[in-house]
Simulated scan of single mutants.
Amino acid sequence: MPELMRNGLIISSQNIAYAISKFIGGVLSDRLSSRLLFSSGLVVSGVATILFAQSDSIAVFAGLWFLNGLAQGLGWPACAKVLRQWFAPSQFGTFWSLLSASANISGGLSPFIAAFIIINYGWRTSLVMAGTVSIAMAGVAIVTVVNCPQDANLSPVVPKTNDNNKNKSKSETKWTDLLKSPFLWLVSVSYMSVFASKTSAVDWGQMYLIEDRHHSQIIGSSFTSSVESGGFFGSALAGYLTDLVLRRQLAAKTGAGDGKKSINRLTPSNARMPVAIAMMTVVGLCLHCFRYHITDTSSQLMITTLGFVLGACLYGPIAIFGVVASESAPPHLSGTSHAIVALAANFGAIMSGLPFSLVAKHYNWSAIFLLLEIVTFFTVILMIVGRNIPARIGTPPKLH
């Protein structure tokens, strides 16, 4: 992977495709079957990965990884739509984060599994196996994924209103209203910032350790795995904490005797943002330590510990921003709302590809992490200033 990543074109090609596809997938998830979208993405991604293993040209590599990005972009919007249908707001953050954390399991284990397969059978076999598993899981998903409780003859999580009110809500809230929401713009900018940091930590962190700090490739790979491992706990913790804060604020409001008026002022999204601010602050501190306090004599324990904390506080806000974007919009626009902020997030990922590799070429890898540190602290200030911006877009979700 480090050899492939020296050519930023391959990384950027996938990130550009993923950004396009995730936006389109979010819009489609409001209109098509989530089960079909998710399964289709798995199949195409698997096929592209297998074909990648049969290729030798950099141009073909970039083209196939672009196709892979297009396929993978369909997955998460479909998952987000299913979660919105199956879980109430007071549970939404927890289950969203658990689903997010599942990606960190593969991200943490795959470097070791892939290394074992590559050493014994070659890198092409490793990719063929990964693609085959993806296609097989598409078959599992098409059978097991259920779009909403009603498809399983169960009651909806949020009780239906009468048809007149439902139609009125849809006619009053349109996708253009999402673009006018200051809160959604705040989430988009924050999402872009944290995604640039996450992608850079995973893609370029080991290069920084190897080339600028002269550590071995084993230590570089262990840092990448520690970021993903920390991401698992950070994602799960973020969802649990934000749901806990939401329930406590709701209990405090109702117990204060202010009644329905207080409940209407309380939105799940506003209640979750302070947790994201705290985690983003720690991200900035970790980036500072990574640049100024990691040297060629730093121990592997110190490096992996820093990577673990960094990963936890990177993936936590990523999970939170996805939740608040989805739940701040009416159900019929939740996929589109998430698609808008995801587009901004993937722009951050694109910037961390070829543009950042050019920065490293002209300066060094250290310059990238200095830039990320500055951007992160600027984002924290922006989030603090905008913490009281109303999150409600159209018809708000009911609290449970």
Results as ranks from 00 to 15, higher is better:
residue 1 M to E: 12
residue 2 P to K: 10
residue 6 R to N: 15
residue 10 I to W: 04
residue 12 S to A: 08
residue 14 Q to D: 06
residue 17 A to P: 09
residue 21 S to R: 03
residue 23 F to N: 00
residue 24 I to A: 00
residue 25 G to M: 01
residue 40 S to G: 10
residue 46 G to K: 01
residue 47 V to M: 02
residue 50 I to P: 01
residue 63 G to H: 02
residue 66 F to S: 03
residue 67 L to I: 06
residue 78 A to D: 00
residue 79 C to L: 02
residue 86 W to E: 05
residue 90 S to W: 12
residue 106 S to W: 00
residue 108 G to S: 12
residue 119 I to V: 13
residue 119 I to T: 13
residue 124 R to E: 15
residue 126 S to C: 15
residue 126 S to R: 03
residue 130 A to R: 02
residue 130 A to T: 05
residue 138 A to C: 01
residue 141 A to H: 01
residue 142 I to R: 01
residue 146 V to M: 00
residue 146 V to I: 15
residue 147 N to L: 02
residue 148 C to F: 05
residue 154 L to E: 15
residue 161 T to P: 06
residue 162 N to Q: 07
residue 165 N to I: 11
residue 165 N to E: 12
residue 178 L to W: 02
residue 186 L to Y: 08
residue 187 V to S: 08
residue 189 V to T: 11
residue 197 S to G: 13
residue 202 V to P: 04
residue 204 W to K: 10
residue 206 Q to P: 12
residue 211 E to N: 14
residue 212 D to L: 11
residue 218 I to M: 11
residue 218 I to A: 13
residue 225 S to G: 12
residue 232 F to Q: 02
residue 233 F to D: 06
residue 235 S to C: 13
residue 235 S to Y: 09
residue 237 L to D: 08
residue 241 L to N: 03
residue 247 R to Q: 11
residue 248 R to P: 04
residue 248 R to Y: 12
residue 250 L to S: 15
residue 259 G to T: 06
residue 264 N to D: 14
residue 267 T to L: 05
residue 268 P to A: 09
residue 276 A to M: 07
residue 281 T to F: 14
residue 294 I to N: 04
residue 310 L to G: 05
residue 316 G to A: 14
residue 316 G to W: 03
residue 317 P to N: 07
residue 317 P to H: 08
residue 345 A to V: 04
residue 345 A to N: 14
residue 346 N to Y: 15
residue 347 F to C: 09
residue 353 G to I: 10
residue 359 V to Y: 09
residue 359 V to L: 14
residue 370 L to M: 11
residue 375 V to L: 14
residue 377 F to Q: 08
residue 378 F to D: 03
residue 381 I to V: 13
residue 382 L to S: 06
residue 383 M to L: 14
residue 391 A to H: 08
residue 394 G to D: 07
residue 400 H to K: 11
